[in-house]
Design a protein around this nucleic acid. Structure first.
Lengths: 223, 223
DNA sequence: TTAATAAGTTAGACTTGACTAACAAATATA
DNA sequence: TATATTTGTTAGTCAAGTCTAACTTATTAA
């Protein structure tokens, strides 16, 4: 049986894992706000269930099975966020906490119905891809704003971090998905970026922020 | 803190309590499908929290505070059922299990939004009253079909038992809320009732079923 | 390359909410 | 009213998931 706790660990491990599917124990402890020994004991359990590969003192590596189970939880989370925003009128900065709870509901019917009502969306309100029923995630082909060069013109497509604080910050800057951003300058010292977008001819975004904004090059523009 | 477990106990105690607000331990054990000692230890905790009055070997008595907290959980449950039926297209026999899980979500915003979207309904899809935000329950003024006399003409308004099996049974008999029933006969031996309703000139309902159907006399008819 | 620091592990304790076995009180029955 | 049965209680155990304290391994810096 996959408990709520296990679902939370899987989700954190999946989200924090690098491209090689690996992540350190302490990263998970921080993400879940639990102690290292708690992570350690849960990791052994997950490894026993075949959801992780684990060797003492080595980074955790999520297995195919683990990724599948994690994707199903993430699917429930993101569908819920979409439903809350699109069908219940919540703001995108309000939905994370509610979705954290609803994602643990055990009823395929419930989430499939949401999916149907929403018209089978591929992305959630933050632009993150929604895994399908088989746990398959559409690759987005986006890159970080922080990886863009001066002169590039890009469209803001997704976020890879969605704390309430961050969303409130984005709202205050009137930064929303779909906006076209022009990169003007990157400060070599601290990687601050100067960008412009409609009604905002001059905004400075910190490196931390740029790292969390996923963008796509606008069609037919050269660097 | 009121845990999910506590919410479930409160709900069961509230639902099973008689008009004097009392209920026996064993009734709760059965309702929640747990052992008597489990109930016993939880009861002590609830009494400590001021949600119950408890004395050894005496029936449990739910306090005002206990009733308030229970009503809030029941409100969440019934609003959810209504939302699932009205806004997500579920059948009334499908929603109980999902609502059992959603009722534990901690977010007033979430349920208030449901309430608003539904237009502040007073009754859920089974006809049970939905407590308001202050935990106040509109008295329905209904009586049991089993308390009706031959010759009475009544409208089916609510159910006081909502297992899936029971709902499936009602569907099979095409018994739905809002139907007008005429009571023709009561069998003295087993209290079986013979009733009629549109398209059904002759149906025999068991005493067990009649006990669970809440009805209201149609305006202006004499016994 | 050794010492200091960071990261990970083990052992053991705690809380919640369940259980069984054994016993006590209350109720029903003969 | 004495006994049998049902109902409720106590004591002790267990599993899940958390924690702190103490220890080990790995990494970083002197």
């Amino acid at each position: 049986m996959i408990s709520q706790s296990i679902e939370n660990y899987l989700k954190a491990i999946f989200n924090q894992a690098t491209s090689s599917d690996e992540v350190n124990t302490s990263v998970i402890a921080q993400a879940l706000e639990v102690s290292l020994p708690s992570v350690n004991s849960m990791v052994k359990k997950l490894a026993n269930m075949g959801l992780l590969e684990y060797e003492k003192y080595k980074p955790l590596k999520i297995t195919k099975k683990g990724k599948y189970e994690a994707a199903l939880v993430i699917r429930k989370h993101r569908l819920t966020e979409m439903f809350l925003v699109e069908k219940m009128g919540f703001g995108w900065e309000e939905v994370h906490e509610i979705a954290e709870q609803l994602e643990h509901v055990q009823s395929n019917d419930f989430f499939d119905r949401m999916d149907e009502i929403l018209g089978y969306p591929r992305f959630d309100p933050h632009g993150s891809p929604i895994p399908d029923k088989k746990g398959i995630i559409t690759p987005s082909g986006y890159k970080r704003l922080s990886d863009c060069a001066p002169g590039e013109k890009v469209v803001l497509k997704a976020l890879n971090y969605t704390s309430d604080d961050f969303l409130v910050y984005l709202n205050s800057k009137k930064l929303a998905l779909g906006l076209t951003l022009s990169v003007h300058n990157i400060e070599p010292f601290d990687k601050n970026m100067t960008v412009s977008y409609p009604q905002h001819p001059y905004e400075v975004l910190s490196a931390m922020v740029c790292d969390k904004l996923m963008v796509k090059k606008t069609a037919g523009n050269q660097k």
